[in-house]
C-alpha cells in the first residue's frame, strides 16, 4: 500500500487520498471558439505512461488540499511533491 507525502500533513497511507489523474492539463479558455477535437483532447486524452507521471492528488480524508505528485507508475516511487501553484521540478534524467 502506497504512502503519499502530503505537503502539509506528511506521509499518510494512500487510503486517505484521492488521485485526480494526470496533472497540468490546461482547461481551454474561450471554450466557445475551440473546436470539438481540441475540446475532446482536453476532456478525454491522457498519457498513461509507464514511468514518471505528473499527477494531481487530494488528501481527501485529511486536510482536503490538492497538490501535485510525480510518481513512477512502474515502481510506485514518489519522485517529487509540489503545490498546486508551483511549477513541476526538474527531475534529471527523466521526462514526463
Amino acid at each position: 500500500m502506497l504512502r503519499i507525502p502530503c505537503p502539509w500533513c506528511g506521509e499518510r497511507d494512500v487510503g486517505e487520498f484521492h488521485c485526480g489523474g494526470e496533472a497540468h492539463i490546461a482547461r481551454p479558455s474561450g471554450a466557445d471558439t475551440i473546436d470539438d477535437d481540441a475540446w475532446a483532447e482536453y476532456l478525454f486524452m491522457r498519457q498513461n505512461p509507464k514511468g514518471s507521471h505528473h499527477e494531481r492528488w487530494s488528501h481527501a480524508h485529511g486536510c482536503r488540499r490538492w497538490f501535485h505528485v510525480v510518481r513512477d507508475t512502474d515502481s510506485d516511487q514518489v519522485l517529487a511533491v509540489y503545490l498546486m501553484n508551483e511549477a513541476p521540478p526538474d527531475l534529471p534524467g527523466r521526462s514526463s
Binding site: 485526480g20 482547461r27 487530494s58 482536503r64 490538492w66 498546486m84 501553484n85
Partner: peptide, 13 residues
C-alpha cells in the same frame, strides 16, 4: 463538496 474544492483549488484559485 470535493468537486467544489477541486475546482476552487486547482482551476480557479
Amino acid at each position: 463538496l470535493s468537486w467544489l474544492e477541486e475546482w476552487l483549488q486547482t482551476e480557479w484559485p
